[in-house]
Amino acid sequence: METSAIEELIRSSLPDAEVEVTGDGRHFEAAVVSAAFEGKILIQRHRMVLATVQAHIASDELHALSITSAKTPAEIA
């Protein structure tokens, strides 16, 4: 799976998100900034991101996605 495909999957559910994905074709890391994270605790933010790729993880097309950062725009300012 390509990093750009994962970025698009995340953006499809979090349209305002700034997404950066790196990886080696099976194991990936994502940094996501989205206003949708406002008022959410870290585990809720991670679940929101992982939900966007769950079908690809279930099919083993995507083996692993680590969320390295899940912040609101205010938290990065």
Rank of each mutant, 00 (worst) to 15 (best):
M1G: 06
M1V: 14
E2T: 06
E2M: 04
T3F: 03
T3P: 00
A5W: 01
A5D: 03
E7F: 05
E8D: 01
E8A: 11
E8H: 10
L9D: 02
L9W: 12
I10K: 04
I10H: 02
R11P: 01
S12W: 03
S13Q: 12
L14S: 03
L14K: 04
P15D: 00
P15G: 03
P15I: 13
P15E: 06
D16P: 01
D16F: 02
D16Q: 02
A17W: 03
A17D: 00
E18Q: 09
E18H: 00
V19G: 01
V19Q: 03
E20D: 08
E20Q: 15
V21W: 01
V21G: 09
V21P: 02
V21K: 10
T22D: 06
D24N: 15
D24R: 14
D24E: 04
D24K: 12
G25C: 04
R26W: 01
R26F: 00
F28W: 14
F28Q: 13
F28E: 01
E29H: 13
A30L: 14
A30V: 13
A30W: 10
A31R: 15
A31T: 12
V32N: 06
V33Q: 12
V33T: 14
V33G: 07
V33H: 05
A35D: 00
A35G: 10
E38D: 08
I41A: 01
I41V: 13
I41C: 02
I43E: 05
Q44T: 11
H46S: 05
R47K: 13
R47F: 01
M48L: 12
M48W: 08
L50Y: 11
L50D: 06
A51D: 01
A51L: 11
A51R: 15
T52A: 14
T52Y: 02
Q54P: 03
Q54K: 15
A55S: 14
A55C: 10
A55D: 05
A55Q: 14
H56G: 08
I57Y: 05
A58S: 14
S59I: 13
D60M: 11
D60K: 15
L62A: 07
L62F: 12
H63P: 05
H63Q: 12
H63N: 05
H63F: 08
L65V: 15
L65G: 06
L65M: 12
S66E: 10
I67K: 14
I67L: 11
T68C: 06
T68S: 06
A70Y: 00
A70K: 14
T72Q: 03
T72I: 04
T72M: 08
P73C: 04
P73A: 07
A74Q: 10
A74S: 10
A74D: 07
E75Q: 08
I76M: 04
A77L: 04
